[in-house]
Amino acid sequence: MTDKHYNPDPHAHPGLHIIAIVEAVKGSLALLAASGLELIGPAPLQRWVHELIARFQLDPSHGAAAWLAQAINPGAVHLAAAVAALYGIVHLIEGWGLWRAKAWASWLGCIAAALYLPFDIYAFALHRHWLEAAVVAINLVVVWVLARDLMVRRR
């Protein structure tokens, strides 16, 4: 169902292109992180966490850093790498779809950005910092651009 005034050419949608580039960058960085986790492995990660605990004089038996040091093992590293890889692949696919002005990519992006909004708003309510405000504003713009694209397609 397309409107004869709606142009599916991705060059007609600069907002989609910008979001597509951001999604592709996020996906690429996530795949790099996943690869890095697999290449580095758990031993150096544990050593780095222990060095941070010592440097900042944290309690090595209590707290988040101590939990992290104990949680790092080969299985956890493989799981984290798999989650990061899946996240990266989804964002690369979304970026490709948005670049090509695919409706399913607009749906995926709109839903994903909308799911982040409650957490972003909560972070802003706690910290009231310009950075949290910028994140909320950017996500609102992304949801608006993608929802607008979907509404134009529907007409």
Rank of each mutant, 00 (worst) to 15 (best):
V152W: 07
R100M: 03
H78G: 07
L79E: 11
D3V: 07
W99K: 04
L146C: 06
A134F: 11
I138K: 01
P44E: 04
A34K: 11
Y87C: 09
G97F: 06
A30K: 12
E51G: 05
W130D: 14
I121M: 10
A123S: 15
F56P: 00
I53N: 07
E51Q: 13
W144I: 05
L37W: 05
K4T: 09
A43L: 10
A66C: 00
Q46L: 01
Q57S: 15
V152E: 09
V77T: 01
H13Y: 11
K102S: 00
L126D: 03
N139Q: 10
H127N: 15
Y122Q: 08
A81L: 11
M151I: 09
L39W: 12
I19E: 04
A123T: 15
H50P: 06
F56K: 06
V143E: 13
A105F: 01
A81G: 10
I40W: 14
A123M: 14
A69P: 05
A112G: 04
I93Q: 10
A134Y: 07
L150N: 08
I138Y: 07
V83E: 11
L58D: 03
A43I: 08
H129S: 13
I111Q: 04
A71K: 03
I53R: 04
S106C: 11
Y116G: 04
H91F: 13
L117V: 12
C110Y: 04
A103E: 01
L92V: 09
A54E: 06
L68P: 02
I111F: 12
Y6G: 05
V142P: 02
V83A: 14
F56W: 10
G95T: 07
A147S: 07
W48T: 09
L86G: 05
H13Q: 12
L52W: 08
L52M: 12
H78T: 08
G63V: 12
E38K: 11
R153D: 11
V83W: 13
A85R: 06
L146Y: 04
P118N: 03
A30C: 14
L79R: 08
I89M: 13
V143I: 15
D59N: 13
G88C: 02
N73V: 02
P8H: 01
V22C: 05
R154P: 02
V135K: 09
